[in-house]
């Protein structure tokens, strides 16, 4: 019996395919990024993303199989991200994957993109469950409780912007370019994080695991506009450092609280923003004080890729939770809702 899963990912601006053995060993992991195309628009343009996915996806799949040294016939199943994400972009991957599965007579599994980010950790770490996971990226900020591989319980998410989205917006106002995460991370190292004490929103009792970044975002933009109106030069590094420190404080506080409430020793970090150096260090230190351990994937597996989709797909495959030929893209998909 084969244990090879082909993963397909087209939820945003990366067209990706990968072959993973046994939900663990990466045989190939191919990514075609569209980032330079969307850069000039200052963000992902859905129609352009969909067109680029269509042009690339079959080639990327062929390359993933070739690099893994296998053929379609060798696959155990095909896994595809069916949400959340941009609907037009998701449709390309979903229709490609389910048509391949039908034509080849292979099982199809539908993967939640957020859970795929979580599963990136399983490719590189052996995790003792239960655990808590913070998923932070351009599209999501979610806290999950994990009973076992592939068994996630939703704890909370952002009420407004995703953390990565806030990074993009502030980077745009500071004219630092797109995407915002890496540029802010870099320039913040030269700034004083205490120069601008921006507000941290740690909300009330019933929504302890929810995040909110819109107030912080407005505060940062107001500060920039005030400085500009007074004719002062904006100390970009200090503003970036102050903003990043506030985001990190919020994320660390909530994640530590979740680990404490759920009583887990292990905490996972996942998603594109997990590559942020300050977040990683701050979270690791805060958790260490409570004798908890932080796990995170290497940077290449933090951003969108298909190896994580194949890893998450493996868990569904093992439980025989197969998708039908009528599988659709679900742009807003919650944890725990498979259809």
């Amino acid at each position: 019996m084969t244990d090879l899963i082909l993963g397909v990912e087209t939820s945003c601006d990366e067209t990706a395919a990968a072959v993973v053995a046994g939900g663990k060993k990466i045989c190939s992991n191919i990514i075609a990024s569209q980032i330079d195309i969307h850069e000039k628009f200052g963000g992902v343009v859905p129609e352009i993303a969909s067109r680029k996915h269509l042009e690339a996806v079959n080639f990327i799949i062929a390359q993933a199989l070739a690099e893994a040294g296998c053929t379609f016939q060798d696959l155990a199943a095909i896994a595809v991200t069916h949400g959340p994400g941009l609907v037009g972009a998701l449709l390309v991957g979903v229709n490609t994957a389910k048509t391949l599965a039908y034509a080849l007579g292979k099982p199809l599994v539908a993967v939640n993109h957020v859970l795929a980010h979580v599963a990136a950790n399983y490719l590189v770490h052996d995790i003792d469950f239960p655990a808590v996971c913070l998923v932070v990226s351009g599209g999501h900020t979610s806290l999950l409780y994990l009973q076992a591989r592939g068994e996630a319980e939703f704890l909370g998410a952002t009420r407004d912007d995703a953390a990565g989205e806030a990074f993009d917006k502030i980077a745009r106002v500071l004219q630092l370019g797109y995407p915002g995460g890496p540029v802010i991370d870099k320039i913040a190292r030269e700034g004083n994080p205490d120069a601008f004490p921006f507000p941290r929103a740690f909300s009330g009792q019933d929504d302890v695991f929810e995040f909110s970044f819109s107030g912080l975002k407005s505060a940062v933009i107001n500060t920039i506009h005030n400085l500009q109106q007074k004719g002062k030069t904006v100390p970009v590094a200090d503003v970036a450092a102050g903003f990043q420190a506030a985001v990190v404080d919020i994320l660390v506080e909530k994640t530590c609280l979740a680990a404490k409430v759920k009583g887990t020793k292990n905490v996972l970090l996942a998603g594109g923003v997990a590559a942020n150096s300050r977040l990683r260090v701050a979270l690791e230190e805060a958790l260490a004080k409570e004798e908890r351990k932080l796990f995170l994937p290497p940077p290449a597996l933090c951003t969108d890729n298909a190896a994580m989709v194949a890893a998450a797909g493996w868990d569904l495959y093992q439980r025989q939770e197969f998708a039908g030929l009528d599988l659709n893209a679900v742009p807003v998909l919650d944890i725990g809702s498979q259809k």
Binding site: L54, I61, F72, L91, T96, A97, T99, L100, A103
Partner: peptide, 10 residues
Amino acid sequence: VVTAKALGQA
């Protein structure tokens, strides 16, 4: 088109 391409590839 995506469906046709995937059938063609498979």
